[in-house]
């Protein structure tokens, strides 16, 4: 008799704990305001990442197609994975002197670990992280990017012209 009573008590305790849990879940089920899920591909237009979000490396250009990268190579040296390559060439400035200038700033997105050292160490703030996060492509060649736009020049020089 005692065994049966204990058995029934255990069943009662089991149902009680089950209902305690169910009260939490059903509470959310009947209050649609508490829903936190984002409908991702549909909300693309309104989805805004935080300003500091480390998306993809970018070189900001002005309307006159100028940038501030001097081609010093600090970002290339400081990168732990070799995801930045800087090619420079000698070019005459307005005084007729041969000066080392940026030719191409190559960025391998596939190797980047988004540590942020390049942006932090850049002495002329020439590169920034943008807020893009959809990096998937069908061809991996597309992950190697040239950051300076064709025909772009150094900002200081552009002022002189």
């Amino acid at each position: 008799m005692n065994g049966l009573l204990n058995y029934l008590k255990e069943i009662g305790a089991g149902i009680k704990t089950l209902l305690t849990g169910m009260r939490v879940t059903s509470g959310y089920f009947f209050s649609p305001k508490e829903i936190v899920t984002q409908k991702y591909p549909e909300n693309r237009d309104t989805l805004k990442m935080f300003d500091r979000f480390k998306g993809e490396l970018e070189m900001p250009h002005t309307a006159e197609n100028t940038h501030t990268c001097t081609g010093c190579g600090i970002c290339e040296n400081v990168c732990p994975n070799g995801s930045i390559q800087i090619l420079t060439h000698k070019k005459e400035n307005e005084e007729g002197k041969l000066v080392k200038q940026l030719h191409t700033h190559i960025y391998h997105l596939s190797m980047c670990t988004f540590c942020g050292l390049c942006v932090k160490n850049c002495p002329s703030d020439a590169i920034v992280f943008n807020q893009s996060f959809e990096h998937a492509v069908f061809d991996r060649q597309k992950l190697t990017k040239v950051l300076n736009k064709p025909g772009s020049i150094l900002k200081k020089e552009a002022k002189g012209l």
Partner: peptide, 27 residues
């Protein structure tokens, strides 16, 4: 994760604390 993302720029692999202090000030 939102607090981390706003301050450090990433959600999981932050690389935010560096020798000497922090990479940049908090948001």
């Amino acid at each position: 994760l939102d607090i981390f993302e706003e301050t450090c720029g990433s959600r999981l692999l932050h690389s935010y604390i560096c020798p000497g202090g922090l990479m940049h000030d908090v948001h």
